[in-house]
Nucleic acid binder design. Structure first.
Length: 454
RNA sequence: GGAGAGGUGGCAGAGUGGUCGAAUGUACCUGACUCGAAAUCAGGCGUAGGUGCAAGCCUACCGUGGGUUCGAAUCCCACCCUCUCCGCCA
């Protein structure tokens, strides 16, 4: 509804500019060629059925076409050189000219067929999700997720618990104005709630930078399509994005970021890093824009699921051998925020069927929402291994002097809007006021309680 | 928005149709000399793909995309980006 995908259809691989070969895929093409059935089997665990026959036939054709094309190119090159040499000596070239002319048509046709096939092959490959890491629980959907640990225990309320919509209404949380300006799933905040929203983001950013060693970043919120290709939003998930165009005509379509994972991770696209530059630990507070296509009717009440929300994001770029340690650390980095805010939560290992497109292993953090009597996602931390790095062409020069793909990880640390929701619900009092968590008070001029204004 | 300059290997910088994947300098690596280092000398040093057991051979890449040509870093067109000046603007 928001972002109908005509883009990918009209223009199969615009984000592939600069990459001519099949070498820039999501999965290692060599792996696919050599262990096709095994790969298909692992992908099946995440509900993706790989069309093995289609791939095989495209590969066979590619191989044959490429060999033939390069053969003809080689022939043309050597004949052309002969022409130059003969001309230099003032000799007759008409014989060679005739010979090379004979190659022309076939070469051109062959090149065109190969180019078309490469586009088709790339498009096919770019829609294949990452392979799940060994040890990820196998499961069809979220019911297959596995709880890893819990922290804190839900508070006992001596009164009827209200949800954040009701609690927030008197504190400046205004869905009507949001809807008036922009439609459903937009929120307008004023006063105490707006202030707390900012305080939450500040606290998170300060913790990630000062306590956990991340470098603070400020990034563009509008990015080019190839950037989204790099992190895996395109080509498959265009309908989840907001597209923007500049005033005036003829401008390239760009996209609003749906998470600053996109802009942070792509910082290293198309580059070869030095080994001693790694790991990179980046963080940013940014708005996120999501069309939420396909989620009609889900979480319609309140600000759980919004078209625009803020998030403090963590990204790490690591050497391959370090990425799984980094993943565990990032989960701890995210947990630290919930602990500081004294919000009960649990850590869940996502099963194969519930993981995101680019992830090899994901942990979700779920915060307790008393009004829903449920744990709800507030952070998601993923190791994408080399999946995004391949798409971005992000490499580093290893100690052995070889260029290898880096590993990329991302995680929310945390989602600001949902944290606000959790605070309003968990810290509410019978009189409609909300206690300000101690950790936020320095960011709110020392205020201890938010009281309904009218 | 207007006018101009420019985008070539890690960096600097040649190259305006024919052995140019690209001179030269510099950085880096290896070796020689040295007790060691510096200096000097010799050699090496881009990325990706195809093919082959391998040595190797082949193909593509000089901002991006297209065109002209037997042949393009070099000529033509479009676009992107950078810099300088003017205008506008938070």
């Amino acid at each position: 509804m928001f972002c109908v995908v005509i883009f990918a259809l009209l223009n199969p691989t615009p984000y592939c500019r600069g990459f001519r070969s099949t070498g820039f895929l999501m999965l290692d093409i060599q792996l696919l060629r050599s262990q096709l059935d095994a790969v298909a089997q692992r992908l099946a665990a995440r509900n993706f059925s790989l069309d093995v026959t289609a791939f095989q036939s495209m590969e066979d054709e590619r191989k044959q076409l490429q060999t033939r094309t390069q053969d003809l190119q080689s022939k043309r090159n050597s004949l052309s050189k002969q022409i130059g040499a003969l001309r230099g000596k003032g000799e007759d070239v008409s014989g060679v000219m005739a010979e090379v002319a004979g190659i022309g048509d076939e070469l051109k046709a062959s090149e065109e067929r190969l180019a078309a096939l490469q586009i088709k092959l790339n498009d096919f490959l770019s829609r294949i999700p990452n392979l799940p890491c060994d040890g990820v629980p196998v499961g069809k959907d979220e019911t297959g997720n596995v709880e890893v640990r819990r922290w804190g225990s839900p508070r006992e309320f001596g009164f009827e618990v209200r949800d954040h919509v009701d609690v927030g209404a008197a504190l400046g949380l205004d869905f009507d104005t949001g809807a008036k300006l922009s439609g459903a799933r937009f929120t307008f905040m004023r006063g105490a709630v707006a202030s707390m929203h900012r305080a939450i983001a500040q606290l998170m950013l300060d913790m990630q930078t000062r306590e956990h060693g991340y470098t603070e970043c400020y990034t563009p919120y509008i990015v080019n399509p190839e950037v989204l290709y790099g992190t895996g939003q395109l080509p498959k998930f265009a309908e989840d994005m907001f597209r923007v165009e500049r005033g005036g005509e003829g401008s390239q379509t760009q996209y609003l970021i749906s998470t600053s994972e996109i802009s942070l991770t792509n910082m290293v696209r198309e580059s070869i890093l030095k080994a001693d530059e790694l790991p990179l630990k980046l963080t940013a507070h940014s708005p996120c824009f999501r069309s939420e296509a396909g989620s009609y009717g889900r979480d319609t009440r309140g600000m759980i699921r919004q078209h625009q929300f803020d998030k403090v994001e963590m990204v790490r770029i690591t050497k391959p051998e370090d990425s799984y340690d980094a993943l565990e650390e990032m989960v701890v980095n995210a947990e630290a925020v919930l602990q500081r805010l004294e919000l009960p939560y649990r850590v869940v290992a996502l099963c194969t069927g519930d993981m995101g497109f680019g992830s090899a292993k994901t942990y979700d953090l779920e915060v307790w929402l008393p009004a829903q009597k449920a744990y709800r996602e507030i952070s998601s931390v993923s190791n994408c291994e080399s999946f995004q790095a391949r798409r971005m062409q992000a490499r580093y020069k290893s100690e052995a002097g070889k260029n290898e793909f880096v590993h990329t990880l991302n995680g929310s640390g945390l989602a600001v809007g949902r944290t606000l929701v959790a605070i309003l619900e968990n810290y509410q009092q019978a009189d409609g006021s909300v206690i300000v968590p101690a950790a936020l008070r320095p960011y709110m001029g020392g205020i201890e309680v938010l009281r309904p204004s009218a």
